[in-house]
Amino acid sequence: MPSMSRNAIVIDLNRCIGCYSCETACKQENGVALGEHWNKVYPVGPFGDFPHIQQYWLPTMCQQCENAPCVEVCPVGASYRDPETNIVLINEEACIGCLSCLTACPYGVRQLHAETNTIQKCTLCNQLTAKGELPACVKACCGEARFYGDLDDPESDASKILAQYDEADIHRLADSGNHPSTAYILSPKYGEWQSENWTGKTE
């Protein structure tokens, strides 16, 4: 019976202090190569009129889209949704390095691994969550800003943090029908959400 869970990470940008610990924890856990990222933090701003300016930090990674274009477009099924966990993953052994998914992903959060010419990306640390541990970035986060869990389970950490905020404070990256699961929390006190159209792709 396929899983209906919607595992994702929710990041409370009110708390994110831009320490880059999540980037580094991901590198350690997953052996991500130099120059490559599965999780990358971008400062946004400062914007506004000096000295009354604002800034926040935007950690980015696979947004775990409900209608993942990367899965649809993969010619060999290497980009797939795991039937047990419902997470979008990559089977690197099957990947032929055609790069279609890089184009299809609206956010540019998939990484071509130079050594093997296969695609890599955030796996929500399934090797850890399978043991009941949290993803490495969630564990390490010094702002206590990252929350993991099933968005459809009100008892999950991810759901509980979302429940603490107004809808107006909950944001997602641009949705053109792909429905990214990853949610970002940002309240006006800490910054005006500017990342509607964020993408990691360089044109």
Binding site: E29, N30, G31, G77, Y80, R81, D82, P83, E84, L89, I90, N91, E92, E93, A94, E115, T116, N126, Q127, A130
Partner: peptide, 16 residues
Amino acid sequence: MEGTRISRRSFVKAAA
């Protein structure tokens, strides 16, 4: 297509 969960350790094996 079998959805193998690729673990980090076995990937090392495969890649090596």
